[in-house]
Amino acid sequence: MRKKSNKKGEILTENIIFLILNLVFLSILAIFLFSRTASAAVLEERYAKQIALALDAAESGMIIHLEMGDALKMAEKNSINFGTIVTIRENIVTVRLRDGAGYSYSFFNNAQITARFDTESEEKYYFVIE
């Protein structure tokens, strides 16, 4: 004897599975996009190059303020001390937002440059060119 199926229930289940699959699919895509665009590696490279170019263009006596809100959030997430995110040794700038060596890029300005975390705003770094 054939069992009579509950057609209404079947349609509802199919639709729910279809919706869940769609949501799972879109969530995976969103996670992928977020991980690629806002990863620590991308931010490290972006800020290291940005700082190097700003310092290349700088002249003695200047102070450059750089807004680094997204980098600071990433550093906080990875338990990195804010004061050690940007370091300058000789003419090489290194940005570190996670465990590891960070990303380094050289600049050609031979001036004496120091990088300091702005403890007042807690969102900026500033660079003193002497």
Partner: peptide, 24 residues
């Protein structure tokens, strides 16, 4: 298509050499 475009854009490093040469 989205994965390919994102990978193409973010998979490569930022090329700043033109700006660097200009500043130099």
């Amino acid at each position: 298509a989205i994965v390919y475009m994102v990978h193409t854009f973010y998979g490569k490093p930022y090329d700043v050499r033109q700006i660097e040469a200009d500043l130099l």
